[in-house]
Amino acid sequence: SSYVCVECNFLTKRYDALSEHNLKYHPGEENFKLTMVKRNNQTIFEQTIN
């Protein structure tokens, strides 16, 4: 599966890399929402900020 930060167009295969991205680029933000999307037999988790 892949993880994408929709706000930044940041894409990674690792959830911990997304967490690091959030700490660096969205410090103090807590209203993240992950949406699971299936595309071409791949699972993509799209992160948006509410």
Rank of each mutant, 00 (worst) to 15 (best):
residue 41 N to G: 08
residue 23 L to E: 03
residue 35 T to W: 06
residue 13 K to R: 07
residue 26 H to C: 00
residue 13 K to Y: 03
residue 18 L to K: 00
residue 15 Y to Q: 15
residue 17 A to Q: 12
residue 40 N to A: 11
residue 22 N to Y: 01
residue 7 E to C: 09
residue 12 T to W: 03
residue 42 Q to H: 07
residue 38 K to E: 08
residue 43 T to R: 07
residue 6 V to G: 04
residue 12 T to C: 04
residue 30 E to N: 05
residue 3 Y to D: 01
residue 17 A to L: 14
residue 35 T to I: 08
residue 8 C to G: 01
residue 33 K to Q: 03
residue 18 L to N: 02
residue 21 H to W: 00
residue 18 L to Y: 05
residue 48 T to V: 12
residue 16 D to H: 05
residue 18 L to S: 01
residue 14 R to A: 15
residue 40 N to M: 05
residue 1 S to M: 02
residue 35 T to V: 14
residue 28 G to L: 06
residue 22 N to F: 00
residue 50 N to V: 11
residue 38 K to L: 04
residue 46 E to F: 02
residue 50 N to Y: 05
residue 9 N to D: 06
residue 33 K to L: 04
residue 1 S to A: 02
residue 19 S to G: 11
residue 21 H to V: 01
residue 26 H to Q: 00
residue 13 K to A: 14
residue 13 K to N: 13
residue 16 D to Y: 05
residue 18 L to Q: 02
residue 22 N to L: 01
residue 6 V to N: 14
residue 32 F to M: 02
residue 8 C to M: 00
residue 24 K to N: 08
residue 36 M to Y: 05
residue 26 H to I: 00
residue 47 Q to C: 03
residue 22 N to M: 03
residue 7 E to W: 03
residue 25 Y to R: 13
residue 39 R to F: 03
residue 9 N to Q: 12
residue 27 P to I: 06
residue 48 T to G: 12
residue 31 N to F: 03
residue 50 N to C: 01
residue 33 K to P: 08
residue 35 T to N: 04
residue 45 F to T: 15
residue 38 K to G: 08
residue 37 V to C: 11
residue 12 T to L: 07
residue 41 N to D: 12
residue 37 V to M: 08
residue 3 Y to V: 03
residue 4 V to L: 14
residue 2 S to D: 04
residue 44 I to R: 11
residue 45 F to W: 14
residue 10 F to S: 07
residue 3 Y to W: 13
residue 18 L to T: 01
residue 41 N to M: 07
residue 29 E to M: 08
residue 50 N to R: 05
residue 34 L to N: 05
residue 16 D to M: 08
residue 33 K to G: 07
residue 49 I to V: 14
residue 34 L to W: 05
residue 47 Q to G: 02
residue 20 E to C: 03
residue 24 K to T: 09
residue 22 N to V: 02
residue 9 N to V: 03
residue 47 Q to N: 03
residue 5 C to I: 00
residue 17 A to P: 04
residue 28 G to M: 14
residue 33 K to V: 06
residue 18 L to C: 03
residue 28 G to R: 06
residue 20 E to V: 06
residue 2 S to I: 11
residue 35 T to D: 15
residue 30 E to L: 13
residue 40 N to G: 12
residue 10 F to R: 06
residue 36 M to Q: 14
residue 41 N to K: 14
residue 27 P to M: 11
residue 37 V to P: 01
residue 38 K to N: 12
residue 2 S to C: 03
residue 41 N to V: 07
residue 48 T to R: 11
residue 20 E to W: 01
residue 13 K to I: 07
residue 45 F to R: 11
residue 38 K to C: 04
residue 26 H to V: 01
residue 9 N to M: 05
residue 36 M to L: 08
residue 17 A to S: 14
residue 8 C to T: 01
residue 33 K to H: 05
residue 34 L to A: 10
residue 22 N to E: 01
residue 30 E to R: 09
residue 25 Y to L: 13
residue 29 E to D: 02
residue 18 L to A: 02
residue 11 L to S: 09
residue 42 Q to W: 05
